[in-house]
Design a protein around this nucleic acid. Structure first.
Lengths: 339, 339
DNA sequence: CTGAAAGCGCTTACAG
DNA sequence: CTGAAAGCGCTTACAG
């Protein structure tokens, strides 16, 4: 591997000058810079990241933490963030929390993060008090995407979960539904996971605004996945008279619900309407009505918010971005039979 | 940040001993090791990765390259690989190639990789001759997942794409279909991308074995996505008499096809049968018949193949793993109307 | 605008 | 089993 000395020798300058020229620092004459670039090019030189990091104190890396990369929203956020970060020259270190709580603790341990990344992007990742305190003390720049922890001093990119859930439920109400079920995220599993709580809140608010009292028997918790949606729907059906409509807290659950309803001999939307929240890649294909949220935009904007302070620039945008959602009506919702 | 000297001072040993004790090298007495561990614990010490990498020559990082993290197969492979790698103490550096060819070239440039990662996992990533040569010359350990490049000396984990496609097509043939279309990956877009070629080959082999001549008008190319499947199906329908069955090269395309067929007023499977290849998370929910491939197993095994040589162990498994596929019959396939 | 020298925080022969 | 010292390949004040 060629190193900086090789380039310096060939360009007849010091290693300090090579370092400056290659990083585009302004204190290098044009002719020198040209000579250095030519030498580096000729030798196929790239600085060793380990050495740069140690000497410079910056890692050139952003750590991105997601609950599970296979879920639509998280995959899409990471996809968009990766592109933005790479264009800016940053590497993306992926932390996929998975199910294991032990995994979580270890990953979010301070010393692990601070020495590995210049900044942190937490996607839908709740934090304990202790974790929050540690991160605050590290003074690591960061951004949160979607709900989860609110880290003091960090910007956030998210939607109005309460409002989106309200809109989804209101759509069902406007069609004349009176028995509207909710498939909620499992609030107990992930500490202070506000997404689940907020969406349930929006659901309840919409019902109350329409003069309906939320019925706990129509409100079931499950995993935020296709299987979770299926299980929750089975659960719902086993409780007796089925609802006339279901608001699932995410599209994956909604698709699981649609599938289970059909297997149970119920037609969607004639017997039961289903609405989700996301606008998953496949929502259009399965005719799912949903409240769309712009996942890629989350990732792109969050990455941008991280880059500004890292480059020493003031943040271009305000600290907290609430992205718009919109109702997309497809074939999975309609008026109730008796409506 | 506490550094190794702090620990050494507290434990009353040299930094060399701290380094050895913490990494579990055998040449440290038990009592010394205990003292060092206690000191490190007390100070909350973790070694600086940059310094370790520079001094030790290892990065503790695996670079994982995927075409697009949002696609089911790739997301699932990365999810499984991440878990295995993290358990072994490795970081995962994600390279999401995306659409941009320029991106590709830069990422796969030798100097970029060798200094950033100890090993490389290429998922469905074709390489040019030049890239292959560079990688071979780097002597970087690696593994390929799914088809793409065959790097000399690297193990691979994949399915038999030709056989899987043959099985999918044979299923349609066995139901009595005579006009079987194929939605293929866009072979021209990604150099030497053998997955697309192999699946088309299997399709053609099955037809020929049944005495049917492949009809180019029933063989359309598209993106490996839901939208790609929709577009290709529209294309197919615009060519005149529709096929009685469609074999889509992946489930996402198959789901796009199902959706477009229904929008066009064609029933699945009564008017047109559809079979995919993957067993996507949502395949069961939409009743898609498919040839299942174990995506998570790909990721887990590939990560394992990488870890053995990195730990200096001989590889536990043979160099080339062909994982089994299996036909999963659901509701999207049936006999042709006139059959 | 450029260079000599120190230093980033570890690991690794080399000795003992 | 342990330590002193060199070295990994850069970047950064400090001088000029």
């Amino acid at each position: 591997m060629t190193k900086i000395d090789d380039v310096a020798r060939l360009a007849r300058v010091s290693t300090a000058t090579v370092s400056r020229a290659l990083r585009g620092l302004p204190t290098v004459s044009e002719s020198t810079r040209a000579r250095v670039l030519a030498a580096a090019e000729q030798l196929g030189y790239t600085a060793s990241p380990s050495a740069s990091r140690l000497a410079g104190g910056r890692t050139g890396t952003i750590a991105v933490v997601v609950p599970q990369i296979t879920r639509w929203f998280f995959g899409t956020v990471v996809d968009a963030a990766e592109e933005t970060l790479r264009e800016a020259g940053y590497d993306l270190l992926l932390y996929n929390l998975g199910d294991q709580e032990s995994n979580r603790r270890q990953l979010l341990h301070a010393s692990n993060l601070q020495k590995r990344a210049d900044a942190l992007m937490l996607v839908s990742t709740p934090l304990s008090e202790a974790e929050l305190a540690t991160i605050a003390q590290l003074r690591l720049p960061g951004v949160t995407v979607s709900s989860g922890a609110a880290v003091p001093g960090w910007p956030s990119v998210r939607i109005d979960d309460v409002g989106a859930a309200r809109a989804a439920t209101a759509h069902l109400l406007s069609l004349g539904h009176h028995r509207i079920a909710h498939l909620a995220g499992d609030a107990s599993a992930e500490l202070s996971f506000t997404t689940h709580i907020d969406r349930r809140l929006g659901y309840q608010q919409a019902l109350l605004a329409a003069g309906q009292k939320p019925d706990p028997r129509l409100d079931v918790e499950a995993q935020f996945t296709v299987d979770g949606g299926s299980q929750a729907t089975l659960d719902l059906l086993s409780r007796g008279e089925p609802p006339t409509a279901i608001f699932a807290a995410c599209d994956e659950m909604a698709m699981g619900a649609m599938s289970t309803l059909r297997s149970a001999g119920l037609r969607v939307p004639q017997d039961v309407s289903v609405i989700g929240l996301d606008d998953h890649d496949l929502a259009a294909a399965v005719g799912l009505t949903t409240v769309a949220q712009p996942a890629a935009t989350h990732g792109r904007l969050a990455a941008g918010l991280l880059l500004d302070p890292l480059a020493g620039r003031p943040r271009a945008t305000s600290a907290s971005i609430i992205l718009p959602t919109r109702l997309v009506v497809r074939e999975s919702t309609g008026p109730p039979r008796s409506g």
